[in-house]
Amino acid sequence: MSHYEVKAGPEAFLPPAAATMGNVLPDPGEAHIEGRIVPEEEAYEYCARKLLEAKVPTIFPGPLVLWKWNDHVAEKATAIRELANAVPMRLIPMADYRPKYPKIDAAVEINPNHPNLTIWHNKIDVCIFVGVHCHQANLALKMIRAATDCYTIAMCAQAGHEDACLSFRDATPEKIRTLIKAVEKLKSEGVKSQANDFTQFKMDRTGLIVKPS
């Protein structure tokens, strides 16, 4: 079977699942870049460069890191916040997987049923999925590849996502911090973040207390 490159879209109304094209998941210690299996170290640098090149790099944390299931998860959430501060990146939660009709507030949330709306609205060009359940991540990753030009990165706690443009596996707080180090290394070499200025929104029980910009 020919090698299928998982590139940023828009690819087609219904892009093929990468697995059906023969793409396989990385083994432990490996990652994949656009369908090509590479050593994890190579992926860290490539990923860091992608994040720094982006105009609107964004992290989409899912329920597996938003809720404090245990101390390990809390540590991971801390590492995610550190990554967001280091690049800098926006944080938009995938708090749940509800369809949320008639519409979602694309400025402050994303869900797998309409990921393209959030990406179009915020003009997101590089995103990281972390803590999203596998089946919902696969659904969203394919839709993003179908309809947007956003480059997708999966920081997966399990075996990785072949439908992301770049995927790590077995993600831990340490691995997220390794990515932060890769970002800092590039910055120390003179690579500057191309991210547009933005204000990270904040919410509490009453709703938005800091509006996004």
Binding site: L66, W67, K68, A74, A77, M203, T206, G207
Partner: peptide, 15 residues
């Protein structure tokens, strides 16, 4: 006890 939001990401969670 587990129905708690991670403190570092609590400020982005919907109301």
């Amino acid at each position: 006890e587990k129905i708690a939001i991670c403190e570092d990401l609590a400020d982005i969670m919907p109301p």
